[in-house]
């Protein structure tokens, strides 16, 4: 036993949070677990179903398709947003009045509520009044994301890139401005090319913020609901039905509480696993970054 004084009274201050979390998270989660092993036809009557719903969800093409769609979506937006974010951050000025202007412009999309983002793009894509839809129609291109799955995907990806690239930009920019001038001076003395400055100074210095950006964007896009729901409603057909949209359809649309509960638990476990990876990577590779940067600068 160590001899450090240890006062457990502090736990009383945490008690309100415990109670709040119990009511808002643990009790609903317990209820979901209870629902996932039963069947209900309403009227608060439940019948034991065992692991039937889990087997059904795991074997259902619908769930797998949504999962694959969701993973594909996350992969595509990461492949676009991360390089684009780095490029924009590199192009942003480091000094002067334009810094504030750029930062405010970059932050604007992040301030817009998600359902409004969906509505903006909904109008933007309309052929009669929307700028994008109208322009495309005038150019002779038939643009109707309500009928073409490819166009629906394109507009959802464009929307996400428009909405969230700023986050990557701001994170990368914060990494870039933290690089001391001495590194660039040394690079100039060595006669390093622009590419080598990027490859050997800027990219390694951005590594930690990039890690955070990638993980944040992955988690967010994996749980995306509002924007595609407003824009396409999961259609045409089911081609833009991501996991969360599918879940809401099952639970509230069809009122299949059992399968929906099983599905949300599986979804929850996937998110939990990813969050753990996120947390582990952050605490073991990311948390020491600010300290190191201070020491180095």
């Amino acid at each position: 036993m160590n001899n450090k004084p240890f006062d457990n009274k502090a736990w009383f201050f945490v008690l309100p949070v415990f109670i709040l979390v119990a009511i808002s998270a643990v009790i609903p989660l317990m209820t979901v677990v209870n629902y996932s092993v039963q069947d209900s036809f309403g009227n608060n009557q439940f019948f034991w179903a065992g692991t039937e719903w889990f087997t059904e969800v795991l074997n259902s093409d619908r769930f797998r398709d949504s999962l694959v769609r969701n993973l594909t979506f996350s992969a595509i937006i990461l492949c676009i947003e991360i390089p684009l974010g780095i490029a924009v951050a590199l192009a942003m000025p480091r000094k002067g009045i334009w810094v504030s202007v750029c930062l405010v412009l970059m932050a604007l999309p992040l301030l817009i509520p998600w359902n409004v983002v969906g509505t903006i793009w909904l109008i933007f894509g309309r052929a009669d009044i929307g700028l994008l839809g109208f322009t495309l129609a005038k150019m002779g291109i038939v643009f109707n994301y309500g009928q073409s799955w490819l166009q629906a995907w394109i507009i959802i990806i464009l929307m996400d890139v428009w909405h969230w690239t700023s986050l990557v930009v701001l994170l990368c920019y914060s990494g870039l401005v933290a690089i001391p001038e001495a590194y660039y001076q040394a690079a100039r003395i060595d006669g390093a090319s622009r590419w080598k400055v990027f490859r050997y100074i800027q990219l390694p210095k951005m590594q930690r913020v990039l890690l955070i950006a990638i993980l944040l964007r992955f988690m967010d896009s994996f749980m995306i609901y509002t924007e595609p729901f407003v824009l396409t409603g999961g259609g045409p057909g089911n081609t833009t039905t991501f996991l969360s949209i599918d879940l809401v359809k099952t639970a509230i649309g069809q009122f299949d509480l059992g399968p929906a509960a099983a599905m949300s638990l599986i979804y929850f476990l996937i998110v939990l696993l990813l969050s753990w990876v996120f947390y582990t990577v952050m605490t073991n590779y990311g948390m020491d970054a600010p300290e190191k940067r201070e020491v180095e600068s």
Binding site: M30, T31, V33, N34, V37, Q38, S40, F46
Partner: peptide, 15 residues
């Protein structure tokens, strides 16, 4: 607590 739809196996699980 009937809305929580407790069953014996899930109760054992949480216990």
């Amino acid at each position: 607590l009937s809305w929580m739809a407790w069953t014996q196996p899930t109760a054992i699980f949480f216990i």
